[in-house]
Design a protein around this nucleic acid. Structure first.
Lengths: 224, 224
DNA sequence: CCTACCGATCGGTAGG
DNA sequence: CCTACCGATCGGTAGG
């Protein structure tokens, strides 16, 4: 690894930390220079512009999503277990990555959703890919007979993303320690409902703690 | 209405417009002065500080929520119809208010969720109240026998908020014209699932027309 | 990667 | 509500 690359990685680490607390606009060249022990022009040598820095931060988040959320989930068998692993890893990734604030990508989406330009495009593209990945995982669960054939993968992917966005506010704005549990419950309810009609009655016991939703959901599968 | 009040209202209207596109931090005293035809110090005479302006903007949004979302929904009978009216009005309020960007409160929540201070407190308090209002509407639906007694109002309120937050990204970041439909479908699925096995059959008619997702979901129920 | 510097804009104040 | 002004910081550049 070249020294330039090493420096760049160290800078990006600081940048991600700042961005998680203050957002992509609150991430300032001056502050970043101070925190990373470089001069401002040193940063420009690496990122060319503030926009370049913002794009690099988003790319960094994408890499972390891949490393902390999706790759580990690939260890699980395709279908519901893998989908559930994605959701669980996702709800934890900012903690795993030791980010002091919340999910950079989610915050950036709301920050830039009315600001045309390359940054918004990269955010949009990233979230679209995330949705596709979720929809693919749902489709595999359908193929495995763990979800009914009539399930709508895109709709479920939308609802899972919504749960994640909602959980972020409970966690970071309300400081609610139950946010994760609430989000997982919402997810299991979603899977349950997408499944057979009486799944909810059967899995009614299988929540929080346990949430052996996987077992109960598949057990509840009527025609499986 | 005093002239001072009238001026203040006119300024706030501009401020809300800017904040919906650029967020509470992107809302700048200089820009607002220009857009409202006043000098910067004129604004300070009204709001004392930028923070004061931000707080005033949030209060303005709360007022709009009350006028455009909750009050009209009170025309509907308590229970599911009123809850549904809240959700429908909510999904439309930025359009009704002619805001050029998305929901100021939602964006502000993600913008300030790691920034302690009075602004964050007011945002947090506003969203908590919103959640309580939704939970109350859910509870009335339970009392009316439209949702099962075991339904969890707080959990449902969380999931409804999540759907709204998710829909905002589909609308504004992806520019998806189906976002509203998707969100309403998610809401009906939620109510359906929370409801008894055949509640969906009863509420199946009460839907916007296009999306008969509720009906088909219940039709797909195997043991129903 | 640095020092030294740029114009523009930030939030805010003095004094009227 | 205005003009006139403040120090600080913004993103960015020249030249090395």
């Amino acid at each position: 690894m070249r020294k330039g690359q090493k420096t760049r990685t160290a800078i990006l680490e600081q940048a991600l930390s700042i961005a998680s607390q203050l957002g992509l606009s609150g991430l300032t060249i001056g502050t970043l220079a101070e925190r990373s022990g470089l001069s401002k022009s040193g940063l420009f040598a690496h990122f060319r512009s503030k926009e370049g820095l913002q794009l690099a931060v988003i790319q960094g988040v994408r890499q972390l999503y891949s490393d902390l959320v999706f790759q580990p989930a690939m260890q699980e068998p395709p279908g519901l277990p893998r989908l559930r692993a994605i959701v669980e890893n996702w709800l934890e990734w900012t903690g795993t990555a030791k980010l002091p604030g919340g999910c950079i990508l989610t915050a950036a989406a709301y920050e830039f959703d009315d600001c045309p330009g390359p940054v918004r495009e990269l955010i949009s593209q990233s979230l679209r890919e995330l949705r596709k990945t979720l929809a693919r995982a749902v489709r595999m669960a359908i193929d495995a007979g763990q979800l009914p054939a009539e399930s709508d993968p895109e709709q479920l992917a939308f609802e899972i993303c919504a749960i994640y966005a909602g959980a972020q506010l409970d966690t970071r704005l309300f400081g609610d320690p139950d946010a994760r549990r609430r989000a997982l419950l919402a997810f299991e309810n979603l899977i349950d409902r997408a499944g057979s009609g009486n799944a909810s009655a059967q899995s009614g016991t299988g929540l929080p703690l346990a949430y052996d939703g996987a077992a109960s959901a598949s057990a509840a599968r009527p025609n499986g």
